[in-house]
Write a protein that binds this DNA or RNA. Structure first.
Length: 274
DNA sequence: CAACCGACCTGTTCGC
DNA sequence: TGCGAACAGGTCGGTT
């Protein structure tokens, strides 16, 4: 579920809880939550580890440990963290629990069981195939223009490919294409340099604004942060999940189509086919 | 490569 | 009210 802005928000909140702490106890409640190493090795290597730093790469939360290893978490569709100072709780969807030296519990909750933890020597084992960070200096309009010219697929689907750019997901791709005025079914290579430039600016702007809002919490999907808070960006979405409503720019009706078995929302007037 | 499919999972909403 | 279908912020692996 979470995309870059939500993962960034979660990583910041977790950083304030975990940084400087020592993990004293690990409970794995759903073994497949641990992608690698084995659940037993994961527990053994994590107990006693201190947390030096918590950050983000793409949609991964990345935690540097005193043991030299790195703990990475991908929340996929329904993963979330819950922090508690009075006991481990009893959420039926809890998949992993970390007990910290000061008594705090950090509980990983994931109804759909898609999320995965990785404990590795080198984070590149997990994040090495990711494309550039869209909010870093690596991501430039020139780079995007040159890359798009060599890709034949639909622009919407390309932007969801984490090997191309890391961190965009279904919400922010729809929003960025709307912002740039580009139809989601356009072939990537058909974008003009001016359009590529607009798309670059739109991606950066949309992500910056969403991070500033603490991400998006769609009401019916109960997206909650480690401290129980909600993001605020849902109030500022222009097209995502708004099929049948008016385009805020031109007033025409927002449409929903399916690309790659996933919903895309766009304005057929503002986002032209060619 | 690309397009397309199912798989991984459970919960909620929608349509009849 | 009930029940199945559709849908959900993600990714991987397989086939054509």
């Amino acid at each position: 579920m979470p995309e870059l802005p939500e993962v960034e928000t979660i990583a910041r909140k977790l950083a304030s809880v975990l940084t400087g702490q020592t993990i004293v106890h690990v409970e794995v409640l759903w073994e497949r939550t641990i992608a690698r190493p084995t659940p037993d090795a994961f527990r053994t290597k994590l107990v006693g580890a201190g947390v030096l730093e918590v950050g983000r790469r793409g949609k991964y939360i990345q935690t540097t440990l005193s043991t030299g290893q790195t703990l990475l978490v991908h929340l996929r569709m329904s993963g979330k963290f819950v922090v508690s100072t009075d006991g481990p709780g009893d959420d039926r969807h809890a998949r992993l629990r970390l007990h910290l030296a000061d008594g705090t519990w950090v509980v990983y909750v994931d109804p759909r069981k898609f999320g995965r933890f990785y404990l590795v020597d080198d984070p590149c084992e997990v994040t090495g195939t990711l494309g550039p960070e869209p909010l870093s200096a690596d991501f430039t309009a020139e780079w995007l223009t040159a890359q798009l010219a060599r890709r034949r697929g639909e622009i919407k689907r390309l932007l969801l490919d984490q090997r191309f750019i890391a961190g965009l997901g279904n919400i922010y791709v729809s929003e960025a294409l709307w912002q740039a005025g580009i139809h989601p079914q356009r072939a990537a290579e058909s974008l003009t340099p001016a359009e590529a430039q607009r798309l670059h600016a739109a991606i950066v702007t949309v992500l910056h604004e969403a991070v500033a809002d603490g991400g998006t919490s769609l009401a019916d999907r109960q997206y909650v942060y480690p401290d129980g808070g909600l993001g605020q960006h849902q109030a500022h979405l222009h097209v995502y999940d708004r099929a049948g409503e008016r385009c805020p720019r031109c007033g025409y009706t927002v449409e929903r189509i399916v690309q790659g078995q996933r919903s895309t929302y766009f304005c057929p007037v503002c986002q032209t086919e060619r």
